[in-house]
């Protein structure tokens, strides 16, 4: 094994030769900051999430629990799993919440949906980003159930991809958190490039955007 390592590194060095031709540092002339006002940024996020055939709703913090309950009820979901760290004020009436304590995969496959928060959302691409935080849970949680309801605080929304990367880099460096970008429900275009929403990941994604700081 060690021999292979030295072999490959040796080949690399031979290939590069003496040429330490260091180009200047990569230019970063692309946009690293958005320009939209907060209201327009949220509008953009809603529009872009909608483009992926996900449902998106804006709710006030006071109605959040009700909105969550309605979202699950409308999809016929009675038993829903949640990560251990969701805020108590999210808990809806009329839906059985199963805390991931953790659940086995079989148990996870048996629930009707999952409720989580997120780390941030990217308006321009309609993306929500999870990083296994207390209100987000481990990765399998948002993967195995067929319905994902995700709560996004308006203050968690950035406009561009570069604005999302700096905070994520910190989480990765400090805590090695796994990160998942979610842009709409799972989809495939493998057959004649015609897009079908819903393959192996959750087939339905509902994003609730809350207009007041969470927690």
């Amino acid at each position: 094994m060690n021999g292979s390592r030295e072999l490959i590194l040796g080949r690399v060095r031979d290939a590069l030769g003496d040429a330490g031709e260091a180009e200047a540092l990569p230019p970063r002339a692309y946009r690293r900051q958005g320009t939209l006002e907060p209201a327009a940024r949220i509008e953009l996020l809603c529009e872009r999430i909608g483009d992926y055939q996900a449902q998106v709703r804006r709710v006030g913090a006071a109605e959040l629990a009700v909105a969550i309950g309605e979202a699950f009820a409308a999809e016929g979901a009675a038993r829903v799993c949640v990560p251990g760290g969701i805020p108590p004020q999210w808990r809806p009436e009329g839906v059985e919440l199963v805390v991931d304590a953790p659940l086995t995969l079989e148990e996870l496959d048996g629930v009707d949906g999952v409720l989580t928060g997120c780390t941030l959302a990217i308006a321009e691409t309609g993306t929500i980003v999870l990083s296994a935080g207390p209100a987000e849970g481990r990765r399998a949680l948002t993967l195995v159930p067929d319905l994902h309801v995700c709560v996004v605080g308006e203050d968690q929304v950035v406009e561009t991809v570069p604005e999302a990367m700096a905070p994520l880099a910190k989480l990765v460096r400090a805590e090695r958190r796994p990160i998942t970008f979610i842009s709409g429900p799972s989809a495939t275009s493998d057959i004649e490039l015609s897009r079908v929403e819903g393959v192996h990941g959750p087939r339905r994604l509902i994003v609730l955007i809350v207009n007041k700081e969470l927690q």
Binding site: R48, D51, Y52, P102, I122, E124, T125, G126, T127, A132, R138, R139, A140, L168, V172, R176, R177, P178, I179, T180, F181, I182, S183, G184, P185, S186, A187, S189, G201
Partner: peptide
């Protein structure tokens, strides 16, 4: 994603760093 599937972002991007206890 824009060059590839012609989407603003692909549905899922997974980033993991080594082993996360209790996850994956």
């Amino acid at each position: 994603p824009r060059s590839s599937t012609g989407e603003r972002m692909n549905p899922y991007t997974s980033l993991w760093t080594g082993v996360t206890p209790g996850d994956g």
